[in-house]
Amino acid sequence: MRAADVMTPDPVCISPDTSIIDAARLMLERKFSGLPVVDAGGRLVGIVTEGDLLRRTETGTQPKRARWIEFLMGSGRLATEYAQTRGRKVSDVMTPEVQRVTEDALLEEVVHLMGRHQINRVLVVRDGKLVGIVTRANLLHALASVAAETKPGPTSDTSIRERLYAELKAQPWAPVGLINVVVRNGVVHLSGTLLDERHRGAIRVAAERIPGVKAVEDRLVWVDPVSGMVVPAFEQTTAPPGKAS
């Protein structure tokens, strides 16, 4: 999927000359945590978020530091901070470096930007002009819609076993040669040896996501590769979400 497939088109935005008070009111009224900032020609110039409005002299939350720290910071940074904590317009507090993508960007790129920069939204532009916004909520809606449209595949015990082995063989962490899989009436029975206890949960997830699986019965035994200590299997049966075990 691409950004254009999930984005909110024509998002609400504000001008750099908008007052900070008006921006805060709009964010509260519309329940937005951030607003794109565009110039008179519709070109994206920045974004203002709740975080940009946290440090303000009006609320007494502006940064307060010792003189020697301010000296080390330098006059330029102090001047920028002064404008951000006392400015009256959005242009004084907004973040000009905005993470943006085009409409053809893959969702993989969008998620990468969100994770790398610890942000909740990525703006979508066309020829420099804002055309949409992709938020984490948009991605969740996309996930839900894809899950709802997923059609069940083959559900025979043989096909389930083949699909599980194929999935595990494609994963570099999976101890395929140490585990056994038996499927009866849609129930996946796991047995064998694990050298890392964390593999247990991942193998269970791989099994539960296969269409037709009714439950997973875990009899895997964990062996500590350092001490050689064997931890007997704690038999556990789980069912995929939405199914009874």
Rank of each mutant, 00 (worst) to 15 (best):
S15C: 03
A244I: 13
T158C: 01
L123H: 05
L143Y: 06
A147V: 05
E108H: 09
S91I: 11
L53C: 08
V110Y: 04
D39F: 06
D5N: 09
H112S: 11
T61S: 11
I179S: 10
Y165A: 06
V213E: 11
A24F: 03
P241N: 02
R56E: 05
A166D: 12
N120F: 02
R126P: 04
Q62A: 13
V205Y: 15
F234E: 11
G41Q: 15
V221E: 14
K64E: 10
M73V: 10
L53N: 07
V12P: 00
A24W: 01
T61V: 01
G34P: 05
T18L: 08
D224M: 09
P16C: 09
A147P: 00
K169C: 08
G74N: 09
I47N: 00
L113R: 06
V93K: 03
V6S: 07
A79V: 07
E167P: 00
W222Y: 15
E58V: 12
L123F: 13
V111K: 04
P152A: 02
T80S: 10
P11Y: 06
D92H: 14
Q84W: 06
R184G: 04
R43A: 10
T8Y: 08
G51L: 06
F71W: 10
L168A: 11
I160L: 03
R121T: 08
V187S: 00
A144R: 12
I69L: 13
A24E: 09
L164K: 03
H141I: 11
V181F: 06
Q99E: 10
L143M: 10
L26E: 07
R77Q: 14
A244W: 08
N120S: 13
R209T: 14
N180L: 05
S33D: 08
E167M: 08
A202L: 15
E109H: 12
D92G: 02
V98Q: 01
A66K: 12
A137Y: 10
S245G: 07
I210T: 02
M73W: 10
T193L: 15
V111M: 10
